[in-house]
Design a protein around this nucleic acid. Sequence first.
DNA 1: CTAGTTGCAAAGCATTTGCCTGTGG
DNA 2: CCACAGGCAAATGCTTTGCAACTAG
Lengths: 127, 127
Amino acid sequence: MQRQTPQRVAIESAFASAGRPLGPQEILDAAREHVPSLNLATVYRTLKRMVEDHAIHPVALPGEPARYELQSAAEHHHHHFRCRRCDAVFDLEGCVEGLKKLLPRGFRMTGHDIVLFGFCDTCGAQA
Amino acid sequence: MQRQTPQRVAIESAFASAGRPLGPQEILDAAREHVPSLNLATVYRTLKRMVEDHAIHPVALPGEPARYELQSAAEHHHHHFRCRRCDAVFDLEGCVEGLKKLLPRGFRMTGHDIVLFGFCDTCGAQA
DNA sequence: CTAGTTGCAAAGCATTTGCCTGTGG
DNA sequence: CCACAGGCAAATGCTTTGCAACTAG
């Protein structure tokens, strides 16, 4: 099925030590510390496979390239917060009620995304 | 400042008759009915100018290219719905309560985005 | 007239794919 | 062994830009 290659190990450990959603270039930079020859195309191919295998989950924020996080973080329904100052993305627990009341007549809802923007604890304290 | 060219008129009327957020290609298709020679590069250039002039407002959905809607539509707070079948985006009226309770301690919220996914009235009826 | 616009083609970016070499099991 | 994985480069797809011709005011 899946081979245990140094490249894949390096990419997986990048996720494990980050603890937050990462983009392809961030992953490449982190994983190259273990496997300097790692190629960006390999990162994309590996990400694709990991998504298919449900090892990671894509995190798409409005107007930004896709990021990915470990599936374990995505196993329960959650949303995201992006800091306007440091641009980091954080997971949020919980959800809200009453989304269905926004639907126009005849529309059916199968899912939703919520993204909050603002300042994280670190950046809020500095401001 | 701004010239009154047939291209720009065609693009503006495309927004006026659509009543929903449009992407560059959708705008090109619609505006070509009035100005067949219209070029996609001109659409991008015109969109950029219109955003700078606050005539239109960008609508960024997770993982998708930007769409635009008339500024008048954006003057009151609203959110969006994307149909999983026809990929069209619609404006939603209203909002929800209780977003602040999702915030971790120390985080401050300055804004939010909500996107609902599902099937619009037309596509839901066909399914 | 003439500065702002347009169409076309080429350039940029991020992401994907083809192809051939390398290697995990 | 040898099918899958990786490296490299070319190919995409979307958006931007350079440039010469065009036109609104």
